[in-house]
Design a binder for these strands. Structure first.
Lengths: 148, 148
DNA sequence: TAATAAAAAGACTTTTTTATCCTTAATTAA
DNA sequence: TTAATTAAGGATAAAAAAGTCTTTTTATTA
């Protein structure tokens, strides 16, 4: 559904939304370390996101990545588009090239509502909103990875 | 979630459940053609399923693949296990190595019920049951692919 | 202004997944 | 019993995804 690349990207962006801002930037090393993602690979992804104006960066000492006010108003869906593209996400669970309410695969009735629900969340909530929910949730919602 | 290989495998098996039996076997060429899957690749998959006793086959003219009574009592989950393995299916939507109710990723609350639901269906329904539902459903449920 | 720290960029490598090809074995029917 | 047909098996190839390395650019601070 989502490539590893895209999963890394989404987690990094939410991580930045929570931990970084214009005055406190965070470098790839730190991010990759916390999220347990391959460092140079993540660097590539952040570069890509930066090109698409989804994340901001500064070179040099005290430099790093952060989200400016505009970046924060983007959605998780924008990240998916930048890394995987829309087509990748919107695929039939059983691989039919044309799977719809009229022409459903055997699991369409289960898979479609789920995809819709995730899609809504991804498309309609801004990154700050996500970050807020993560921070204020009673549960300890994870972005950092704990290897098992 | 599921590899292409696994999607091809599931569709072929349901296809066989509906269209073949001990007296009418179907060859890979016909299956691959209807399902629009790469023929030699599908052959490999059916071989694998045959080794795991999920599908039956006969060589020679009038030979081909079919499901015997035992095969029909297997589940779609058995196919997933044979081709992808359980681990592949049960992965966190955002890639956390440990994602659970106690340690949820930001989309766990949406993704988990979906995975459970699919898993139940895959595990608890036999292949004949699937086939029956597909045949008797009001809708035209697709296994064959129509390229767009 | 020099040293340093960090991102940007591009080329490259490795691994995984998907897909093909070729030879052998089994079965059927003429 | 021979020709035809179809699966089984193994080796290989191609494509995609994941990951690394090296050099260049930009900013900071001493």
């Amino acid at each position: 559904m989502l490539s590893k690349a895209c999963k890394y990207a989404i987690r990094s962006m939410l991580y930045l939304a929570i931990h970084a801002d214009g005055t406190k930037k965070i470098g790839v090393n730190k991010i990759a370390d916390d999220l347990k993602t391959p460092q140079p690979f993540l660097a590539k992804l952040l570069q890509q996101l930066q090109r698409d104006k989804l994340v901001s960066s500064m070179k040099g000492p005290k430099g790093g990545f952060f989200l400016d006010e505009k970046n924060k108003e983007n959605s998780v869906w924008d990240i998916v588009m930048s890394i995987d593209g829309a087509a990748k996400f919107d695929q039939c669970f059983l691989g039919l090239s044309k799977c719809s309410d009229e022409n459903p695969c055997p699991v369409h009735s289960i898979a479609f509502p789920f995809k819709q629900r995730i899609l809504e969340d991804f498309r309609d909530k801004t990154i700050v909103q996500w970050a807020g929910e993560i921070k204020n949730s009673g549960k300890v919602i994870s972005l950092k990875d704990i290897e098992v």
